[in-house]
């Protein structure tokens, strides 16, 4: 059977800061420029169709930048990204139609209700209004949101509930590639399980491909078919969870956890890396 690549990321580079170009032709570049930060450093990866691919890394490792590059929100400084054979820069609109994203912040108009927010999102993606009005309550209910919440402002809902509405938004636009940028960070265990279940359902029922960034090792272990560990913008290792754990095994410690495998490949624990990133 021929494996189709859903996502091809080829030698992609993204820097921030150190900008020396002039915004206006008559304006001199500032003398003191901030040092450029290499957020994504020559990253290459391939994600197969219908695969759940994880990108693990601490805060500031480049996970969200990678997601933004794939989702057309950033233009790379080098390299290329293709989604089902379509270049994200040259065929931006075709690519946009194929993907949706759930980020760590739910990102809604907080005064609007879930139904109003979802009507806006579905109209942008060309879903007929009558169909959206029929499907929105069905999907919200399937996600465990009480019908009396459908028309109340989102700001009155918990973060877990808001994140479920964000999942519904992605689901309603039928993406063939779903980009999940730490979708369960900060959620209570029940909401986390609900969201994880929905991700698996989306893959199973809609043949979607999923790119998941997380720093929750248990979540990555449970959901991902393959994964890469990203550190300082670079992929340090790639493989299935079992492969990564096997490669990190030593005679003294033959069955490491994914957390321990992470430490083996990066030389640090996730907590240490996040403390370093925060400082």
């Amino acid at each position: 059977m021929v494996q189709t690549d859903a996502v091809v990321v080829d030698d992609i580079v993204k820097r921030f800061g150190g900008e020396r170009r002039r915004i206006l032709p008559f304006r001199r570049p500032r003398r003191e420029q901030s040092a450029p930060v290499l957020a994504v450093d020559h990253v290459s990866l391939r994600i197969r169709k219908n695969e759940i691919y994880g990108v693990l890394g601490a805060n500031g490792s480049g996970k969200s930048t990678l997601i933004r590059l794939i989702s057309t929100l950033l233009i790379p400084d080098g390299g290329r990204v293709e989604i089902f054979g379509h270049d994200v820069i040259r065929e931006e609109k075709v690519v946009k139609r194929m993907l949706n994203r759930v980020s760590v912040e739910a990102s809604f108009f907080k005064k609007l209700s879930p139904v109003e927010n979802l009507m806006y999102a579905t109209r942008l993606y060309g879903v007929p209004g009558s169909e959206a009005r029929r499907e929105i309550p069905r999907i919200l209910e399937a996600l465990g949101i009480e019908p009396d919440r459908f028309n109340r402002p989102l700001e009155q809902m918990s973060r877990g509930m808001q994140q479920k509405v964000a999942i519904a938004r992605a689901f309603l636009t039928s993406p063939v590639l779903l980009l999940l940028d730490e979708p369960t960070t900060g959620l209570d265990p029940r909401s986390k399980l609900d969201v994880q279940e929905f991700i698996l359902r989306l893959r199973r029922d809609h043949d979607a491909t999923v790119l998941l960034t997380t720093h929750d090792m248990a979540e990555a272990d449970a959901l991902c078919d393959r994964m890469a560990i990203l550190e300082s913008g670079r992929i340090v290792v790639e493989g299935t969870p079992a492969e990564l754990k096997a490669r990190a095994a030593t005679p003294e410690h033959p069955e490491p956890t994914l957390e321990e495998a992470f430490m083996h490949f990066t030389g640090h624990s996730l907590e240490e890396m996040e403390e370093a990133a925060a400082s």
Binding site: L73, K96, N100, R101
Partner: peptide, 14 residues
């Protein structure tokens, strides 16, 4: 301010 800018710019519209 609302935090929706990335979602509006990701939408497949001109």
């Amino acid at each position: 301010w609302e935090g929706t800018i990335e979602y509006t710019f990701m939408a497949p519209i001109s």
